[in-house]
Computed example of a mutant assay.
Amino acid sequence: MTLEIPANYQRIVLAARPRGPVVEENFRLETVAVPALAEGEVLVRNHYLSLDPYMRGRMSAAKSYASSQALDHTMIGNTVGQVVASRHAGYAVGDYAAGLLGWAEMGVADGAALRKLDVAALPLSVYLGAAGMPGMAAWYGLNHIILPKAGETVVVSAASGAVGSVVGQLAKLRGCRVVGIAGGPEKCAHVVDVLGFDACIDYKAGQLEADLAAATPDGVDGIFENVGGATLEAALARTNAFARIALCGLIGGFNGQEMPIKNSRILLINRLSLRGFIVTEHMDLWPQGLQELAQLVADGKLKYHESVATGLAAAPRAFMGLLQGQNLGKQLVKLI
């Protein structure tokens, strides 16, 4: 198979670090030449780009678990696409692959850093969501930190998002009562009616603590936290003794706000286990987790929703919307 390779492609770089909320001026759209391949490298034409909350943390110069996004370099991001040229024995032109090729129409990677995809089994985009990194974050945090037992109650914040939506469905498959927290009646309806959660609390309704108490009459045994702040505090107040908390994200503080836990004494009183995790530090478990997730999607037991922006130039605004909670499910950018 031979596929046409253009001389140039577009990419988006980080032009300036945000001071507070992300704005479009933090990014710059550029046209660059397609590079020649070295031995072992693969050229991929990206079809979809994943937008994820962790990118906001990388845009900062503050010390974190990973190095900051470099200025004037392609913004970090997971992609899926088709191989258009290869000097790697494991990849042929026409194959589909997932990689970390960033906010760009095309990208070059060492073949060892890519993951070959079966597009006959699942739609290509799903490998960036329920059967990709967000799904793995859900799978790991639930199965290796919360360790749910049938009959227990699990609370999930950002329940309509790419990670939270998977957490809740996996917990339901384990026989748990699952209560989501999301923003707005539309998202809560999706969480209950489509994803199958037992209840969903609309934090924008202004009665978070009371509504969560009503939805968790037997207390809370597990918390999957994606937001921090008020949602975590409300869930902590409902915990039973020896509850487990998987701290996946703190999207509520991505613009630099401090995220204190006001009722932290509950951690001691209820002998809670709270563990933060970075899913990319557990790559040894990815083959197992991704296989299980892909099978659940293929069997119709794991549902997903995608919010899709069109064209690379739409990525900054779509990313800003993601940070403001405007998306439903997985936020993608369709590049081709």
Score class of each variant (00 low, 15 high):
222 G>N: 06
161 G>N: 12
64 S>D: 15
212 L>R: 03
163 V>Q: 02
217 P>V: 13
84 V>D: 02
231 T>I: 05
285 L>P: 00
116 K>P: 10
46 N>Y: 12
18 P>E: 11
306 E>N: 06
236 L>C: 01
25 E>S: 15
274 L>G: 00
62 A>G: 09
46 N>F: 12
196 G>D: 11
63 K>G: 06
37 L>T: 03
196 G>R: 07
35 P>K: 10
177 R>M: 02
15 A>S: 05
279 V>K: 14
75 M>C: 11
189 A>W: 01
90 G>N: 04
242 F>C: 07
60 S>G: 06
15 A>N: 15
96 Y>E: 09
150 A>K: 10
198 D>E: 08
28 R>Y: 05
111 G>Q: 13
209 E>L: 07
319 F>M: 13
58 R>I: 05
319 F>C: 02
142 L>Y: 01
92 A>Q: 04
11 R>P: 03
275 R>L: 02
325 G>H: 13
95 D>L: 01
274 L>Q: 06
46 N>R: 07
20 G>F: 09
286 W>A: 07
30 E>M: 06
44 V>R: 01
113 A>M: 09
134 P>D: 12
227 V>K: 00
280 T>E: 13
162 A>K: 04
141 G>Q: 12
154 V>I: 15
82 Q>L: 06
259 M>V: 11
34 V>P: 02
118 D>A: 07
264 S>W: 10
172 K>Q: 10
191 V>C: 08
206 G>M: 03
280 T>A: 10
8 N>I: 04
197 F>D: 13
125 S>G: 09
222 G>E: 00
2 T>F: 08
81 G>T: 13
248 C>S: 00
212 L>N: 05
300 G>D: 08
161 G>R: 08
138 A>H: 03
236 L>P: 00
300 G>I: 12
108 V>Y: 09
182 A>R: 12
309 A>V: 11
215 A>C: 08
52 D>C: 11
155 V>E: 03
185 P>D: 13
332 L>C: 02
246 A>Y: 07
325 G>F: 14
150 A>G: 09
72 D>L: 07
2 T>E: 15
180 G>M: 04
161 G>T: 02
236 L>R: 01
280 T>R: 10
145 I>T: 03
267 L>D: 07
59 M>T: 05
182 A>Y: 12
145 I>K: 01
139 W>A: 04
267 L>W: 03
2 T>K: 14
267 L>M: 15
126 V>H: 02
237 A>L: 03
70 A>I: 06
142 L>F: 00
117 L>I: 13
237 A>R: 02
264 S>M: 08
56 R>A: 05
60 S>Y: 09
85 A>Q: 15
140 Y>V: 08
94 G>D: 13
